[in-house]
Design a protein around this nucleic acid. Structure first.
Lengths: 205, 205
DNA sequence: TTGAAAAGCGGAGCGACGCTCCGTATCGTG
DNA sequence: CACGATACGGAGCGTCGCTCCGCTTTTCAA
């Protein structure tokens, strides 16, 4: 259940209408997600697509699977962005830029950050998808920056990734909340700093 | 609608059963919240209290109001903890300790951090309660630490408080996530540091 | 071309949720 | 005690995610 069981994609040849409907569903879902956010009712997507709810659930066993499918391309792009590395500076700078790309992605999908860490049943697949695809990338960036001496070595990519996602929660519900500043604060904390005055490295459980 | 419209508390003299039932509801809600988390169905609380749902909603117009009422004492304690200041060290250390107390509170109430930033209708009151009671405290701690030269001055208490709450989201759903470490990372980013190598103070919008 | 089996589709329906509404029970005062 | 004011209870409403099965469409051998 980890490598290849994607219900979408062009697997073995299927009936023509099946492929057509799957595309219809993805398009409709994308449109509805933009209009109403990730939490839009499934019925709404059914209406938008002109198909029935049974069809949705046959293609995507749960709402989360539909969300995953809709954003898969963009997640892939994010994972690939690390290789492109257009404006490479220090490894820390590269890391920082990737993080901000990640944030850009999260905050433009209404409710995605919230859903990523939801305890709603079925949404673990969303969480898993993101972790599996993006954590290796972040881990690589982190290790590179640490190896070059720019960042501390005691931060796990997993924690850091969830933290970034978490900090994006609420951007639209609380317009006064400046998530980006807090992301920068976290990044500043990550930077290796000449530990000056007070207690650092608090290792007590 | 900001100062004194608390539906609970012992306002004007009411019928005896009303006061009795309000206490029953608070007790039942507290028990159910511990057992099933903040998101427990209202019906469950009604069952636990032995009262009807109508009674709940007459006392607390929305679920969020009930949550607020249940935790009001602990929020007050948290707000007061800053004056006690038992193990005072540097202002930064005091700030850090208070933050960790706040985190202790959040992570022991299953689902509270999530609810705090939920877009669910009616939950703004929960958010507001926390902001109104605790942000002044945090602001004071922050200003003190900054004035003493321990922390940067460009971080707003509001952002910082939401960030802390956000970082606590998912602790129980994702046991591998070490929220505390990320809180410490944020605190490290807050500390005034001899800015060494790479780009800091990113002020681009 | 045809016709029946295989495959897919649609939407009524289920259980759970937050919250409302109003007939009924309880309180407390004259 | 009696009666008006007050509060209670829980059936019921609208909405949600998701399921189930009778019906339609596609496919392909004859």
């Amino acid at each position: 259940m980890s490598t290849a069981d994607t219900p979408s994609a062009s697997a073995g040849r299927k009936r023509a209408d099946v492929r057509r409907n799957e595309q219809k569903l993805l398009d409709a879902a994308a449109a509805v997600f933009v209009r109403m956010g990730i939490d839009a009712p499934v019925r709404e997507i059914a209406a938008e697509s002109g198909l029935g709810m049974g069809t949705i659930y046959r293609h995507f066993p749960t709402r989360a699977d539909l969300v995953v499918a809709v954003f898969r391309h963009q997640v892939d792009a994010l994972a690939a962005a690390v290789d492109a590395a257009p404006t490479a500076g220090t490894p820390y700078e590269v890391l920082r830029q990737w993080v901000h790309q990640f944030v850009d992605f999260l905050v433009t999908k209404h409710g995605l950050a919230e859903a990523l860490h939801s305890d709603q049943a079925g949404f673990e697949s969303l969480h898993n998808e993101f972790v599996e695809r993006l954590m290796p990338v972040l881990d690589q960036l982190l290790k590179a920056s640490t190896a070059a001496g720019y960042t501390r070595s005691d931060v796990r990519a997993y924690d850091f990734m969830l933290a970034i996602g978490n900090l994006c929660i609420g951007v639209e519900n609380f317009p006064d909340y400046q998530a980006r500043r807090m992301i920068d604060l976290l990044l500043a904390g990550l930077a290796r700093t000449a530990p000056a005055s007070t207690g650092e490295e608090p290792e007590q459980p």
